[in-house]
């Protein structure tokens, strides 16, 4: 029995899981970024990423190469994220949390509708960012696309880490997230930091979307909805207040979901998400703040 076990398949499926998990991790990080500064899960994050992907599609359609379109879309998404915060979130900055949550749900419909409005709902394709050729490592064949996705995801995470840890802007962003009132007293323009956070989150979502789309045979406006679900689940699994936790949580989830889909027949594709959520729920019952989240002391 043990001899019959196919280690090659396990390695391949793990890499495929990491590739998907990496793209979820980017969106999960975007969620965490906004959650840490405003205490709200942005339900529109996935749709914003989808919208970015459609912008990239249009740019490529007009003759740009994939990577030209990639970086131009990043810039547009960043500006768009900042603009959305200014116009839509700023007015409810001081409203109850649930009100802000509903606003992001409204934003979900708005962005989704805008994408269906501007681009008709026929399916389309994005060229591959990486070669589709397989590469053989230690006798096991992997797809370059999967390895590329993992590399880009980790690269973006590293860049973000550097931004937060080693720059003055990053310090101000962290200060804002940890205590906005105190931050204003040292002269940080807190309100703009929140907008900047939205811009960064939008750009990260854009990366996630632009790498998710080429892997699919075709995509439409529903592109990022499952990704958002997995990203949310991954972020909560890792601890929604911890960026590191969100990345690890999403990667773990990616591998886990792919492996149970492969090895447990009755789960198939339909039940992957429910089973994953059930496992997460189990984890949360043991560790209510997620794997890496710190339980914050509550004021009585």
């Amino acid at each position: 029995m043990l001899l019959a076990f196919d280690w090659t398949q396990l390695a391949q499926q793990t890499v495929i899981g990491l590739s998907a998990g990496g793209l979820w991790a980017l969106l999960a990080l975007a969620l965490v970024l906004i959650y840490r500064s405003t205490g709200v899960v942005n339900f529109a994050q996935g749709e914003m990423a989808m919208f970015s992907t459609f912008i990239a599609w249009s740019l490529i359609h007009h003759g740009l190469s994939y990577w030209q379109a990639f970086f131009l879309t990043l810039a547009i998404s960043f500006a768009g994220g900042v603009a959305l915060e200014r116009v839509v979130i700023r007015p409810v900055e001081r409203a109850p949390v649930l009100t802000v949550v509903i606003v992001t749900l409204g934003l979900f419909f708005l962005v989704d509708g805008a994408a269906r409005w501007f681009w008709s709902s026929e399916t389309r394709t994005l060229p591959n960012a990486f070669s589709t050729r397989p590469i053989t490592v230690a006798g096991v064949a992997f797809s370059i696309q999967d390895l590329g996705n993992i590399a880009v995801s980790l690269g973006v995470v590293a860049l973000l880490f550097a931004l937060f840890q080693f720059t003055k802007l990053g310090l101000a962003l962290r200060a804002t997230a940890s205590n906005p009132d105190e931050s204003r007293l040292v002269g940080i323009r807190v309100s703009w930091m929140l907008a900047l956070g939205w811009g960064l989150a939008a750009a990260m979502g854009a990366v996630s979307g632009m790498l998710t789309a080429p892997a699919l045979a075709s995509f439409d406006q529903n592109l990022m909805q499952p990704v958002l679900l997995y990203a949310f689940a991954g972020a909560v699994l890792g601890g929604i207040s911890s960026p590191f936790g969100a990345v690890v949580g999403a990667l773990l989830l990616g591998v886990f979901v792919n492996l149970i889909g492969t090895y447990v027949d009755w789960i198939g594709t339909d039940l992957r998400l429910p089973v994953a959520l059930a496992v997460i729920l189990g984890v949360l019952l043991v560790r209510p703040a997620g794997l890496f989240g710190r339980a914050s002391a509550r004021r009585v």
């Binding site: 839509v88 007015p91 409810v92 409203a95 109850p96 009100t99 509903i102 606003v103 749900l105 409204g106 934003l107 979900f108 419909f109 708005l110 962005v111 989704d112 509708g113 805008a114 994408a115 269906r116 409005w117 501007f118 709902s121």
Partner: peptide
């Protein structure tokens, strides 16, 4: 369908901004 959802979302946002 796009315009409909767009208006729907915009209405939700406007209502929440006006009546937090």
């Amino acid at each position: 369908s796009g315009v409909r959802d767009f208006v729907y979302g915009a209405a939700i946002i406007v209502v929440m901004i006006l009546l937090p």
